[in-house]
Amino acid sequence: MATTSAYNRDDRTFPYIAIMPVALIVLLLGAVPAGYTFLLSLQRYELINPPAVYIGMKNFVTLLTDDPRFVHALVFTLCFALVATSLELVIGFFIAHLLADREVSHFFSSMIRTLLLVPFVVAPVVASYTFKTLIYDQTFGYLNNVLKLVGIPGVDLFHGSIAAPIGILVMELILRTPFIVIILYAAISSIEVSIFDASKIDGVNWAQNIGRVIIPVIRPIIVIGCILRFMDALKMFDEIYVVTAGGPGYVTENLSIFATTQAFTYFHMGYAAAAAFLFLLVVVFLVALFMRRIRL
């Protein structure tokens, strides 16, 4: 890399000019709003009772020490992202492994992979409405009617505190596992055939093949897939907003729902900004943690 700069005189300025627009975007459209959120978070700013008053770190202290609802939202967000990501990884891995299986016809596999791209291009808000009414609803939805045909009593998403998170989880799995499938397929199918042949000669069985050959080889890609999926699961908003609105009670309230409720239902702009800023800190911390892994 150093050698290229010898060829040309404008190479000293070139990178700076080239990243200038991007740096400006990051600064003006990323750093400025984030800074503004931080400023808001230091205020008691009631939209229906202005003006704003500076109160220092009080919002943060209240959030962390005196708001079980925030703590619940934080824990739910992290747990949900963790569970969803792990399940998607396991299920996605086996589907990807099957798709890359040399016994499965190439045409069939590529057709399935194309079909699995559909979830990416459908607006999440539309998919969520479909789940809410056309699938989950016990009166209007298909799920309950199909279950009835098989003789299983209906599933009530709003009974007890466990059915609703599971309902959201299943929906998330159906909509997002294809992401894992597609990138893991790319990884598995790019493993050199000779590696498999060598292991076949060694006489390893199916499980050993996965555990000792495939996973170690594609580990970096698994890590990247997990990180991206995990970060997106943290941000999840549309699905919960539409299907359960955080209910029943507070059961499915995550950080995004908590912060929007504080901001636009209760009009505690400062408090909401503090919650959003803490959320941002969690994300920045996690990105920093994952950064080395992502840059392969």
Binding site: V284, L286, V287
Partner: peptide, 23 residues
């Protein structure tokens, strides 16, 4: 800069909705 760009990709939109509106 590249780290900041990555963060921009990961940031929850709720952080930006209010400031953008006022901006």
């Amino acid at each position: 800069v590249s780290y900041a760009i990555l963060i921009l990709r990961m940031v929850p939109p709720i952080t930006f909705v209010i400031p953008y509106f006022l901006l």
